[in-house]
Amino acid sequence: MPNIKKENPDFIGYEYREININNKLVDLYLDNYPNFGWQIISAEKAQPVNSKMIIKLKRNRHIANKQELTRLQRKFEAQLSQVDKLEREKTVRASATALTIGFLGSVFLAASVMLFHYNIFLSFVLGIPGLIGWILPYWVYTNIKTRRSQELSPQINKLYDLLYDTCEQAHKLLT
C-alpha cells in the first residue's frame, strides 16, 4: 500500500457555480464576483439567438469569512436584479403604448380598405388616422422612454452605489 499523507497543504477543494444572466449585466458580474472570492472560469453565450450569457465560476470551499461573503453575495445579486428590473421598466410602458397606437392604426387602415368600394370618402377619412397610427409610435416610444429614463435614473444610480458598497465590504473581508 502506498504511503498516503492525510493532509496535503497544497490541496484546494473548490465549489463551482454557473449563472445565467442578461448580456447587459455581464460586465458587472465579471468585475464584481471576484470580490466574493469567485474565480471566473468562462463566460459564453447561452444560445446564438438568446440575449443571455452563462458564466462559470469556482471558489475555494474553505475561504475565510465564507458565510458573510455568501450573505453579501446574495445582497449583491438582489440589488442587481432590482437594477435589471428598473432598466426593463424604462421600456415596458413605452413599448406597450407604441404597440397600442400601432394596433389602433392598423384597425383604422383595415376599416379603410374594407370601405374603399362602398364609400371612398369615409375610406380616406379612416385611412388618415390609420397612417398616423403607423407613423406616431416611434416618436411616442422615444418620448416615453426618455421621460421614464430620467425618472428612474436617480433610483438606478442609488442602487449602483449600494452595489459597489456591498462589493467593497466583501473585498475587505477577503483581504
Rank of each mutant, 00 (worst) to 15 (best):
S42M: 04
N32D: 15
F124S: 09
I132R: 02
K90Q: 10
Y16S: 12
V26I: 14
S81W: 07
A98C: 11
G133S: 11
V26M: 14
F121Q: 14
I55M: 04
V140F: 04
F124K: 09
A94G: 01
L122H: 09
K85M: 14
S106N: 11
P34D: 03
S42N: 14
F76H: 14
E89H: 12
L136M: 13
E44F: 00
A111M: 11
M53V: 02
V26E: 12
D27F: 07
G102R: 03
T100K: 02
I63N: 01
S51Q: 10
Q47L: 13
K24G: 05
L122Y: 13
Q67C: 05
M53C: 01
R71S: 11
P129E: 08
F36R: 04
S51D: 11
G102W: 02
N60W: 03
Y14V: 08
G130R: 04
G133D: 12
K52A: 09
I55Q: 06
F76A: 02
I101L: 14
D84T: 03
G13C: 03
L25G: 01
T70W: 00
Y33P: 06
R74Y: 09
L72R: 06
P137K: 01
V107P: 03
I63P: 00
Q47S: 12
L104K: 04
V125M: 13
K75E: 14
N65W: 08
G13F: 09
Y118Q: 10
K24I: 06
I19T: 07
A64I: 02
L72P: 06
S42Q: 08
K85T: 14
Q39I: 04
L28Y: 14
S106T: 15
E77S: 10
H117K: 13
V140I: 15
W134M: 13
K75I: 01
L86G: 03
V49H: 09
P137F: 00
A94V: 00
E68R: 15
I40N: 08
F108C: 13
W134C: 06
A96Q: 13
I40V: 15
A78S: 12
Q79A: 00
V140P: 12
I41W: 01
R17K: 15
G133H: 07
S51L: 05
P129G: 03
E68T: 10
V125P: 00
F124G: 10
P34Q: 07
L104Q: 07
Y14D: 05
L122G: 02
L57K: 02
Q39E: 15
N65R: 11
E87H: 12
F121P: 06
D27W: 07
H117F: 05
V125D: 05
Q47K: 13
F36V: 04
M53E: 06
G133I: 09
L131P: 09
N20Q: 06
I63R: 03
F121I: 14
S112V: 08
Q47N: 14
T142I: 10
L136G: 08
P129M: 08
N20D: 12
R93H: 00
G37Y: 02
A43E: 04
N22Q: 11
K58W: 00
N23A: 04
L30F: 01
I40W: 02
I120N: 11
E87M: 12
L86N: 12
L69Y: 00
E77K: 13
K66G: 02
T70P: 00
A78K: 13
K52N: 15
L28V: 10
A110Y: 12
K75P: 00
N23Q: 08
V140A: 11
S42G: 09
